[in-house]
Amino acid sequence: MNTLLELDDVHVRFRTHSPLNAILKGIDDPFVDAVNGVSLEIGEGETYGLVGESGSGKTTLARSIIGLVEPQRGSIRYDGTELVGMPTAEMQKFRGNVGAMFQDPVGSLSPRMTIRSLLAEPFKIHDLSQRNLGQEVNRLLEMVGLNRDFANRYPHQLSGGQARRVGVARALALDPKLVVADEPTAGLDVSVQGEILNLLGRLQQELGISILVITHNLNVVRHITDRMGIMYFGRVVEQGPTETMFHQPSHPYTLALLSANPEPDPDAEIDRLELQGEVPSLFNRPSGCEFHPRCPFADDRCQASFPDLTELSDAHSYRCHHPLHVT
């Protein structure tokens, strides 16, 4: 399988104090690290799931891939092209290659535009207005299973599922090779969630696209992804094939997330690794391994040093001093 997207040691930092303010307040490093050295690869036609809790940096990472935030360090290569440091004008052109689906199906569509204008917009932005836009809009609507009459409606006249379908159509308008889907099914009912995921799956098979799915819904990840990565505090703490990750997680946080997923069975035996506390504030980064204040296995070493990457077979890797059942 050819690699389509390759991230190497990506760092995204946000400024917290202006330079003057930092000097006055005596702050040496007026930044927070939202994404802290992430490396991952997505192959052609592959679905990669990025999982983590709020504030873990998964959305920031996605935004850096589509060029909405600039990484301070590291490299993002798409099909051999380096995206970090690309001039804005070039980046704007490049964006046609990557489709994006944002959180909140209805909120991510402009309320003042009809579905027709929303679907024609990508072509206008990328100077493709010479195409027959009416035809393109119909093609897209049909592709996502919506009736042609929808072209005249406004976003508020759509249900969540229908708005999401429009989001899918917009993301795929320019035939991208990669789609970044940020929480594609959050807020949708389970029966509608299934429809959207089936649609994405079908389109992926037909068009051969790669998908990066960002979600906190592990049940979704289990069914639709080939590989997955777990993010905590701006780092990928474990990644590997989805199957392996579910059956043999190495990082305690992965296990905690997997077991925090209540099963829809009142008689399920619950063998849970329950975490204390919450994700700490980015302004107050714990020393050593960031997970140690919540980790049941933490000791002095975890407090002192950040664990190196350990690579197991099968592209499965983790960062932990006390991995679970490693034989």
Binding site: A260, N261, R272, E274, V279
Partner: peptide, 8 residues
């Protein structure tokens, strides 16, 4: 809320 908090 996030999954680990939901359980809490």
């Amino acid at each position: 809320l996030d999954a680990t908090l939901e359980v809490q």
